[in-house]
Amino acid sequence: MNDPFIMARSVNVFYGDKQALFDVDLDIEEKRVTALIGPSGCGKSTFLRAINRMNDLIPICRFAGSLKISGHEIYDPDVDVVALRAQVGMVFQKPNPFPKSIFENVAYGLKIHKMTSSKTELADRVEWSLKSAGLWDEIADRLDEPGNSLSGGQQQRLCIARTIAVEPKVILMDEPCSALDPIATAVVEDLIDGLRKDFTIVIVTHSMQQAARISQRTAFFHLGNLVEVGDTKTVFTNPQEERTQNYITGRIG
């Protein structure tokens, strides 16, 4: 049997003396949407940020265990974090476009990674990214306007366009819809569903309905432990663990 695309084994993460994750073993399959759910402070965001090593930015944060993407151990000392993050993109909770034009927001990653060789290629690539993020039709004639002038939902889709422009293998999303209204949320959810055929997506969400709507697999975290992981349908209709049952029925959380 093939190894799963992302394979976490005995992952422990510490913030100073405080342990945030305990021996997490989790497999994430390629070109699927995996949802990480659980109450606040359960470690799901910590796990997500371990996948592209964003936790490295926190000086007191320490990682132990093994995390392999496509067979490569990403915590090996000789791994270049910059190259890793080019392959594992991230969309944040609050839309955070660069304080630059819409075009520059998307073109930035392509420019720093020197992924295009001409101006027209760059423009084509930006257009493709914005189309893939379902934003092109709305902003095609105002590419020079600042990214901050868009609405919240548009900004978040701009951030997704920016992420997919550099064609990462994995896209991590940290509660991407929590700052959006229901209509914008629906648009972004449709988008995530469409991106599944090209990208492996890991999404942290507080909304169980959202997890049920868009994910194929769901992992439930509680107090730093991975309680249960399985097909979304199974987890929500026939959970194996009592704690999962309690959470999805609203008794803990």
């Binding site: 592209n52 964003m54 930015l57 910059v82 190259a83 890793l84 993050r85 080019a86 993109g89 991230m90 944040f92 609050k94 955070n96 476009p97 660069f98 304080p99 930035y108 990653g109 720093i112 990674h113 951030c159 920016r162 992420t163 550099v166």
Partner: peptide
């Protein structure tokens, strides 16, 4: 806002690029 720097790092900018392209201006 640190989110701007995080955004740059998350698409693979080096720390110097993140600071000089986004924080600095």
């Amino acid at each position: 806002p640190p989110s701007i720097k995080e955004a740059a790092l998350a698409i693979g900018a080096t720390p110097v690029q993140a600071v000089f392209h986004h924080v600095f201006p």
